[in-house]
């Protein structure tokens, strides 16, 4: 028999034109289940009015980002065991820094507009993907293959970012990381946007984005590198190159 725990989900609720509240649901769970499984069971068996977003259930689509006890998590890959113990209360809230549509669902349109503005790559040559192999180990014939980029566009980094909380026009971690991935020497047209007051200099280097990223993008490091790229591009520009 799998291990059984009792846990209580304390879920943020918000319907249009109604005050927000928290509803609690006490469930028997297998601690190796994912948070999303427990939330889906709340919807299936306890409260059909609960709204939450989810699709792939294995961290490729980025739909199910939420805050679990105040920390941004992709709930489809977060086991109950990793954030709780028997009889724990788990507070489930929507991502911050986005308008709430209903309950746990937020409107991420602004993030997608910014990803479009920097023309973030959805697929890239496999030899440019920062996975286990260092670049020099790829063979030339490998370059014909592509893979989906690591960034799931899940919004966790925007929710965790202390600057995004106060400055709505700030491009934010995922779009800046996508700009870094382009490299400004290949895409000098992005310089004006990146070098603007809402661009790469607005970051406070808190690295909260890197701490919560579920998909190895490491936006904090990429933003620091994008600053170097920006300075290089401006120096090149100064010398007319």
């Amino acid at each position: 028999m799998p291990e059984q725990w009792t846990v209580t989900l304390r879920i943020y609720r918000q319907k249009t034109n109604e005050p927000s509240r928290y509803d609690t649901f006490t469930l028997e769970v297998n601690p190796d289940e994912y948070i999303l499984d427990a939330i889906e069971r709340v919807w299936a068996f306890h409260d059909r009015s609960l709204c939450f977003r989810h699709a792939c259930h294995h961290s490729t689509c980025g739909a199910c980002g939420m805050r679990v006890n105040g920390v941004e998590k992709l709930t489809c890959i977060t086991t109950i065991r990793s954030v709780a113990r028997p009889n724990a209360v788990l507070t489930i809230e929507p991502l911050r820094n986005f308008p709430i549509i209903s309950d746990l669902v937020v409107d991420m349109g602004e993030l997608y507009r910014k990803m479009e503005a920097v023309e973030a790559r959805a697929v890239l040559p496999i030899t440019e993907a920062e996975i286990e192999k260092p670049p020099h180990q790829w063979k030339t014939e490998d370059s014909q293959y592509v893979r989906l980029s690591d960034c799931l566009e899940c919004g966790l980094c925007i929710s965790a970012c202390p600057v995004a909380a106060t400055s709505q026009p700030y491009l934010g971690p995922a779009p800046l990381a996508a700009a870094q991935d382009h490299r400004l020497d290949r895409r000098p047209d992005l310089l004006t946007l990146i070098d603007s007051e809402h661009g790469v200099w607005r970051c406070h280097s808190a690295f909260e984005c890197t701490a919560v990223c579920p998909s190895f993008v490491d936006p904090g490091r990429r933003i620091m590198d994008l600053r170097k790229q920006t300075i290089s591009a401006k120096i090149r520009h100064f010398f007319g190159k």
Binding site: C51, R53, H54, A55, C56, H57, T60, C61, A63, V105
Partner: peptide, 14 residues
């Protein structure tokens, strides 16, 4: 009733 692809489609093998 949910969001895009919340049922079988989202959970396809790919």
């Amino acid at each position: 009733r949910g969001d895009i692809c919340n049922g079988t489609s989202g959970r396809t093998h790919g």
